[in-house]
Simulated assay, not measured.
Amino acid sequence: MLAALVVLSACGLPRSGPNKNEIYAGAVERGGNAHVIYVNDHVTRATNFAPTYGFSNSFLRAGQVGADEIRSGDVLGLSIWENVDDGLLTALGSSSTALTEIQVDSAGYIFVPYAGRIRAAGNSPEQLRQIITDRLSAQTPDPQVTVSRVAGNGATVSVLGKVMAQGVYPIERPTRSLSAMLARAGGVSVEPEVAVVTVKRGNQQGKVWLTDLYGSRSNDIALRPGDIVLVEEDQRSFTALGALGGQTRVPLGNEAINGVEAIAMVGGLSSALADPTGVFVLRDEPESVASNVLGKPVNGMQRIAYVLDLTRPNGLFLARDFLIRDGDTVYVTEAPYVQFSKVLAAVTGSADSADSLTSIGD
């Protein structure tokens, strides 16, 4: 019987992954390439940072687009009244003429008969009206001019991604802010808790959680012509493996998740399998954080296996204070007796391994 136990122990019995001793064997101190670190108060302080999203000052300080400012690409409509029977532009017997759909060219100019080429971009409709009036006054007595924007193609924003209605939308008086433009696109098509909004402006970009956008007025930035608004579902996640209630990839969302919550999110430790002294968080730690954790300078990314021993007096407190980050692997080893029970079951062919072994001995 003992010989059979030894042989089976040496064989590859089914299990969920490496045991605690095998992970320890891969430590740097034993010739491996991973640092095995017990989590303590120093480690929680050194590692506890969560990525934050937000907009730079250039986004936050940008003023709203003037609702009346004319831009390249806008389409204008002009109406001109002349105080004579046979005017420059009006037909015989008519006192007015309408010039519809005059598009502001890429250089910002329009052409008005008898007034010539006039710079429209950067002016308000009222300012442009005065310029045209002054130009025509030299050729017809007391002209009266009105200017209106027919279409605002020159001040548009592209809204893409996880929204109800993707498209190119003009910046108008009601849609000059980020939240208003998202509402104009029908809102987001994913759960608000996992929605991330990115605004690309030239060579710059900033992003914010949707919940933070509505939670803080400062994040509701003013939009500028040519902005691209992209709504995505957050892809940050951790992987849960081993002797847990479930083995899966778990989205992190926009909340800070600690070790206790991460375990609970997959059903907790398996009471029949888990070793509470062997809860590991496997992570590639950046150089700055790794140096702080190890207490010495290191070069480059470091592989670290953080150990959460839940049987220690403050083990659960430390697990509660230890934050899980994007890309982490939470792995729980099996208790030592589990493999022994599997060996007994393989030898005796019974689930009640210890009782069967006693019966065989009798």
Rank of each mutant, 00 (worst) to 15 (best):
L2S: 05
L2D: 07
A10Q: 11
G12R: 12
G17R: 02
I23C: 01
Y24A: 04
Y24S: 00
N33F: 08
Y38C: 00
V43E: 04
P51A: 15
T52P: 00
F55I: 02
S56V: 02
G63F: 00
V65Q: 10
V65M: 06
A67I: 01
E69T: 07
I70N: 00
L76F: 04
L76W: 03
G77S: 14
V84Y: 09
D86K: 15
G87M: 02
G93A: 11
T100S: 13
E101I: 00
D105V: 02
Y114A: 09
I118L: 14
A120T: 02
A121R: 07
N123A: 12
P125W: 03
Q127Y: 02
I131Y: 03
V145Q: 06
N153D: 15
G154L: 10
L160S: 09
A165M: 06
G167N: 04
P170N: 04
S177A: 02
A180I: 01
R184L: 13
G187I: 05
S189A: 15
E191Q: 14
A195F: 09
V197E: 00
V199C: 10
Q205G: 12
G206M: 10
R217N: 05
D220M: 01
L223C: 10
P225E: 03
G226R: 07
L230E: 11
G245S: 07
P251K: 07
L252D: 08
A264R: 13
M265W: 06
D284W: 03
S288D: 15
S288F: 11
S288A: 15
N299I: 13
I304F: 05
V307Q: 09
D309F: 07
L310F: 06
R320D: 13
D321L: 12
L323R: 14
I324M: 15
R325I: 04
R325D: 13
D328N: 12
Y331R: 02
T333Q: 01
A335I: 01
S341F: 14
S350R: 15
S350Y: 12
A351Q: 14
D355R: 13
D355H: 03
